[in-house]
Simulated scan of single mutants.
Amino acid sequence: MSTTEIPGPGGRVERPWGWYESLASGEHYLVKRLLIRRGQRLSLQRHQHRCEHWVVVAGDGQLQVADELIAAAAGTSVFIPQGALHRASGGHGDLEIVEVQRGEWLSENDIERLADDFGRI
């Protein structure tokens, strides 16, 4: 199994909350851009095989890492340790995040959802 599984050319993957696209990948890292639509949110999730670093590049909303809630605006940055619960929510406008994943296995299959607005548990 490869260390990364990323979309092919064109790269944008639509999700019920918005979309993501892969920007770069290499040995044990993957960089994505996520857009969480106004009023939408990612599932409450964790990963067993990777950590993530989120940098908000545009918009507003809220980030949750473990039990901490963080107001999100351009420039906000959070580190999500491997195994930590986390979620991002769009606010009054769309929320745009650059996500850097690091780990031995980088796959959408490494998402454990604990709560989801779209029934994907």
Rank of each mutant, 00 (worst) to 15 (best):
L69C: 03
P7N: 01
R37Y: 12
T76E: 00
R15M: 13
G83F: 08
T3G: 02
R113A: 05
I97K: 01
L63N: 04
G75R: 00
I97R: 02
I111E: 10
T3K: 14
V98P: 00
I6E: 00
L63P: 09
R113C: 03
L63E: 03
Q48N: 14
E52T: 06
Q45C: 11
I6G: 02
G103S: 10
W105N: 12
V98Q: 07
H47K: 13
G18R: 01
E96Q: 15
E112C: 01
R41V: 01
M1C: 03
T76G: 00
E68Y: 04
R33M: 10
R50Y: 10
G103E: 12
H92T: 09
E27S: 14
D116G: 10
E52L: 02
L69H: 11
I97W: 08
K32S: 05
H92C: 02
R37L: 13
A24F: 07
W54T: 02
I97Y: 08
Q62H: 08
D116I: 05
D117A: 11
I36V: 15
S77H: 11
G10D: 12
W19Y: 14
G26W: 12
N109D: 15
Q48G: 10
E99L: 05
S22E: 15
D110M: 07
V100M: 11
I36N: 08
A24T: 02
T4Q: 13
S43D: 11
A88S: 07
A24P: 06
Q62N: 08
Q82T: 04
S22A: 12
L30P: 04
Q48T: 12
D94V: 04
D117F: 09
R46N: 14
Y20M: 05
E96P: 01
L23S: 06
G103K: 10
L85R: 06
P81I: 00
G18M: 08
V13Y: 07
H86N: 09
R41F: 10
E21A: 13
R38F: 09
L23G: 03
S2P: 15
G8I: 01
L42M: 13
P81N: 02
R87K: 08
H53T: 11
R38W: 12
V56N: 00
V13N: 05
R41A: 05
I36A: 04
R33G: 06
A73E: 12
D94E: 07
S22Q: 13
V65C: 10
